[in-house]
């Protein structure tokens, strides 16, 4: 449903539903910490960013009409066949594996935390650096470059 909507806000709502259902699956798999992180970070923070940008760009009915023109069967039939082939291969690989009987066990957040801060300490620091670089990069890219554009226009006028 996310990939077939014309209106961006509708697609966003369907994506939130998908995120919530994945979070419930995490809970059923015995990973309550991951479920909470999914709801808080994905459905909370990232979706707010998307909504903010969509509201900022003022995408409404015009974008929906444009998308309706773009999304013809001629366009999506080829990628759909390719994706179906890929899914068939995945289905074959997963269903032909020999699955030993087992029982699902809950991985509590304490084990995750101990594993996160002992063997994966380098990974945590790298993730922190990545987030820092992301923040700085977003702040740098997001600033309006009107001064530079203005200067170029001035030069063209002078020439």
């Amino acid at each position: 449903m996310v990939i077939t909507r014309h209106n961006p806000v509708h697609a966003l709502l369907y994506l939130i539903i998908s995120l919530l259902s994945i979070s419930v699956i995490f809970f059923l798999l015995g990973a309550p910490f991951a479920a909470l992180l999914e709801i808080i970070i994905y459905a909370g923070a990232i979706m707010v960013l998307f909504i903010f940008v969509i509201m900022l760009l003022n995408l409404g009915k015009e974008t929906a009409r444009q998308e309706k023109e773009w999304l013809k069967p001629k366009v999506w039939i080829g990628p759909a066949i390719l994706s179906a082939i890929l899914f068939a291969e995945l289905f074959y690989l997963i269903t032909t594996a020999h699955a030993a009987p087992y029982s699902l066990q809950t991985v509590d957040p304490k084990a995750v935390a101990v594993s996160l801060f002992r063997p994966y300490l380098i990974g945590v620091e790298l993730a922190a650096m990545l987030l820092m670089a992301g923040v700085v990069g977003a702040a740098h890219i997001g600033q309006h470059k009107k001064m530079i554009l203005h200067r170029f226009l001035k030069e063209e006028d002078a020439l």
Binding site: F50, V107, V112, A138, G142
Partner: peptide
Amino acid sequence: AQPDGQVMFIFILAMAAAEVSIGLALILQ
């Protein structure tokens, strides 16, 4: 029953957050 999967999930989450912030800034530009 290993915690490594959730550790990787947390890393993916951090990467997704950074990717979304950068991507949305690029879209604005």
